[in-house]
Design a protein around this nucleic acid. Structure first.
Lengths: 224, 224
DNA sequence: CGAAACATTGACAACTTTCAATTGCCGTGG
DNA sequence: CCACGGCAATTGAAAGTTGTCAATGTTTCG
């Protein structure tokens, strides 16, 4: 099933379509507290849609999720990538300003936002964790915003360093997302991403065993 | 006193240099709860510096504040502008990743972060307000990130629309920040900002009575 | 194996930056 | 009060970067 062919459907409907999961090994804030129901989403499935009311908070148990916004002229922007243990759906206001989709087959914990906030009212530790998670999200988005002020090559390098911190195994990064996803996250075209990868490979900063794998050869060069 | 001639000094030192304020008329979250001590900062003064420990949370009572980051090569990025009633300094981690400066002469309420979080543990309403403020900050930064993926003209238009929402009086926006500040916020050069303003003026979308004032003539055109 | 989607590469156009010069604004001092 | 100096803003021309369009190569999966 391909992302671009998925028709929009409400989070409720998708949630219903999802299947219950066994308790996962991964531990995030919600998992630790045994909160939320684990639900599976196939690659490309929409978890919630832009403009829908904010009802739930989500935690990735397994897989990768992206938040996206489609502009009126068809351009697509990716707000962020979320991996196992990450919380997403933390938005203010009544409605979501972005939609969320599973990039790969994913398992996601879902909990009612109201319930979580209510619980936080009684549980001081939970409240502080919630604040910490939210602050971390601010830092992440801030960082994202700052990297968009850089040149294409710097953006790609920053992206690789971010992925290195979040999902690398040693010097190997296996990218779950397509070039188009990377491009939309960095605010450049896929051609620019591709060209930049090639340049970084030619300057020995990275190696590209295949299009989804990146080996970091010279992190200092990526940091400039 | 000019911004660029101010030498860096710690938040503590600046805070000590600041003078106590009379209780202000403006009301934000902290003011409502009569939290924090109002302190004055002169135009260009540093409120806290990048790399300093996160100890306080701030609320603008009067004036305008910018958060900035200076890169190793001297480029400067502005994370956000904060006007009366806005909260800033909400960052995660031990140290600030950005510094904050008063753009104009400003008065700022300061409260110990720890104290605020501790209080939020006892006061459910405060906890929820804190969460709401934090979520709003995420939305603002998200919006900033999204606007950085656009063309220069779209960025400038988005900037004007953002200022229109936040500080306009009718169709008039009096910008407290310089072209350089705007440029650093939008990730373009001052020349591009200037040229774009001229284009918008020539297409009758705005009028420029002087360099710090913008009159919105055609909001629809700015939205495209 | 072959079709479809994804990724890379090339050539050219468009946009933005860079460098340079000019204009406008405002405070200070004659 | 006006002239001057200094800084911010605007404008112009040339260079550089990124986007667009197009062709080719690669991977995936029925």
């Amino acid at each position: 099933m391909l992302a671009h062919t998925i028709e929009k459907q409400s989070a409720e409907r998708v949630a219903r379509r999802g299947t219950r999961d066994n308790p996962p090994a991964r531990s995030g804030v919600m998992a630790k507290l045994m909160l939320g129901v684990p639900i599976k989403f196939g690659a490309g499935a929409e978890i919630y849609g832009e403009g829908e009311p904010v009802e739930y908070v989500y935690e990735v148990v397994q897989g990768t999720v992206r938040t996206i916004k489609v502009l009126s002229d068809g351009r697509r922007k990716i707000g962020g990538f979320y991996f196992a243990g990450d919380i997403f759906g933390l938005e203010e206001g009544r409605d979501h300003t972005l939609s969320a989709e599973a990039i790969t087959d994913s398992s996601v914990r879902v909990i009612k936002r109201r319930a979580l906030i209510k619980m936080a009212g009684y549980d001081r530790e939970l409240a502080q964790q919630l604040l910490a998670v939210t602050s971390r999200e601010i830092a992440r988005v801030h960082n994202h915003a700052l990297m968009l002020i850089e040149t294409a090559q710097e953006r790609v390098s920053s992206f690789l360093l971010e992925m290195a911190e979040r999902i690398s195994v040693g010097d190997l990064i296996v990218l779950p997302m397509s070039r188009q996803d990377i491009a939309d996250y960095l605010g450049v075209t896929i051609e620019t991403v591709s060209r930049t990868f090639t340049i970084l490979e030619n300057t020995a900063a990275i190696a590209l065993p295949n299009s989804r794998a990146v080996v970091l050869r010279d992190r200092a060069a990526l940091r400039q």
